[in-house]
Amino acid sequence: VLKALERTRQLDIPDEKTMPVLMKLLEEAGGNWSYIKLDNYTALVDAIYSVED
């Protein structure tokens, strides 16, 4: 979780936006981090930006 938060902080995305999206992605992935961690957490960042749209 810390590495995911560090990555999104680099992009000026607050933890308050990151955590709900991260928890949803983890739930959808059955707790499997490998998809979320791919390409420096690209799936997480993309999911956060899609929620903002």
Rank of each mutant, 00 (worst) to 15 (best):
Q10D: 08
Y35T: 14
L44T: 02
T42V: 11
L25I: 07
Q10W: 07
L25H: 00
L38C: 08
A47Q: 06
N40W: 07
Y41M: 03
D46W: 08
N40A: 07
P14C: 06
L26G: 01
E28Q: 12
P20H: 10
E27R: 08
D39C: 08
A4K: 03
K37L: 15
N40G: 08
D39K: 08
V1Y: 13
K17G: 02
V1H: 07
Y41C: 03
A29H: 15
D15V: 03
N40D: 10
E28R: 10
L5C: 07
K37C: 15
L25K: 02
L22R: 00
L22M: 05
S34M: 12
I13C: 02
Y35L: 12
A4W: 05
R9I: 01
Q10P: 02
I48P: 00
L5H: 03
K24I: 06
D39N: 14
P14D: 07
S50V: 10
W33S: 03
K3R: 10
Y41P: 00
S50M: 14
V21A: 07
E27N: 09
A43M: 15
D46A: 12
E52M: 14
V21F: 05
K17H: 08
M19T: 04
T18N: 02
K37I: 15
I13Q: 02
L11M: 08
K37M: 15
D53W: 10
A29Y: 15
P14I: 04
P20A: 11
D46S: 12
R7D: 04
L11N: 03
A47N: 04
L2Q: 15
T42G: 13
R9S: 04
A47P: 01
L22T: 00
L11Q: 04
L2V: 11
Y35R: 10
K37Q: 15
V1G: 05
V45F: 05
K37G: 13
M23D: 06
L2I: 13
R7L: 08
I13D: 02
K24A: 10
S50A: 15
V1R: 06
R9H: 03
Y41Q: 00
Y35H: 11
G31R: 03
E52S: 12
D12Y: 10
Y35N: 13
E16M: 08
L44Q: 01
K37T: 15
L38T: 09
W33K: 01
M23L: 13
M23P: 00
Y49M: 15
K3S: 11
I36R: 00
K17T: 12
I48R: 01
V21N: 02
V21W: 05
K3I: 09
I48W: 03
L26H: 00
I36H: 00
K17I: 15
N32D: 15
E16R: 08
E52D: 14
W33Y: 03
E28C: 10
T8S: 04
I48Q: 00
L26P: 00
G30R: 09
S50H: 12
Q10Y: 09
L38Y: 12
E28L: 10
Y35P: 10
M23W: 09
I48K: 00
L11R: 02
L38N: 11
R9L: 05
E6T: 09
N32H: 07
T8R: 01
M19E: 03
Y35K: 13
G31K: 05
P20T: 10
E27Y: 10
A29R: 09
D53S: 14
S50Y: 10
A29K: 10
A47I: 04
L2D: 15
N32R: 07
A43L: 14
A43C: 07
L11D: 03
L22P: 00
E27Q: 11
P14T: 06
D39Q: 08
Y41D: 01
Y49P: 04
L11E: 06
A47S: 06
D53I: 14
G30A: 09
L22V: 03
K3A: 15
R9K: 04
D46I: 12
V45D: 00
D12W: 08
L38E: 14
D53P: 14
G30L: 09
L5K: 01
V21Q: 04
L11T: 01
L25G: 00
D39F: 08
T8V: 05
M19Q: 04
A4T: 03
D12M: 14
A43E: 05
A4L: 04
E6Y: 07
M19R: 04
S34L: 11
E6V: 07
L5S: 03
R9D: 02
K3P: 05
S34W: 15
G30Q: 11
R7S: 05
K24Q: 11
S34E: 15
V21E: 03
L44S: 01
R9G: 05
E16L: 07
V51K: 13
L11P: 00
T8A: 07
G30N: 13
D39S: 08
V1W: 15
Q10V: 08
R9N: 04
D39R: 07
V51S: 15
I36V: 08
E27W: 10
E52Q: 13
V21Y: 04
D15E: 03
E16D: 11
L26Y: 03
M19G: 03
E6I: 10
P14L: 06
A4C: 09
N32L: 06
I48G: 02
I48N: 01
L38Q: 15
S50Q: 13
N32F: 05
I13T: 03
D46M: 13
W33R: 02
L5V: 03
N40F: 07
V45A: 03
D15S: 04
A4F: 05
K37F: 11
L25A: 03
V51Q: 14
K24F: 07
A47W: 03
L25W: 04
L26A: 02
K37H: 10
N40E: 07
P14W: 05
L44D: 04
E52T: 13
Q10K: 10
G31Y: 12
L2G: 12
I13G: 03
E28I: 12
N40K: 06
D46L: 13
M23S: 07
L26I: 08
G30I: 06
L2A: 15
Y35F: 12
G31S: 05
V51F: 13
I48F: 04
V1I: 15
R7W: 09
G31A: 05
K3D: 15
V51C: 10
S34T: 14
E16N: 11
E27I: 12
A47H: 06
E52I: 14
A4G: 04
V51M: 14
P20G: 09
M19P: 00
V45P: 01
I36D: 02
V1F: 15
E16I: 10
A29P: 02
A4E: 07
D53Y: 13
D39A: 08
S34D: 15
T8D: 01
E27T: 10
K17S: 07
S50W: 09
I48E: 00
L25M: 14
V21H: 05
E52V: 12
E6P: 00
M23Q: 10
Y41R: 00
G31F: 12
W33F: 06
T42Y: 11
D46Y: 09
A29N: 15
E27G: 09
N32C: 08
V45C: 02
L44C: 03
S34G: 13
D46P: 00
E52W: 14
Y41H: 01
A29S: 15
E28A: 13
V45R: 03
V1L: 14
D39T: 04
L38K: 15
E27D: 11
L26S: 00
I36L: 08
V21R: 03
T42I: 11
L22E: 00
V51L: 14
R9T: 04
M23V: 10
L38A: 15
L2E: 15
T8F: 06
A43D: 02
N40L: 06
L5Y: 01
N40V: 05
A43G: 07
K17Y: 08
L5A: 03
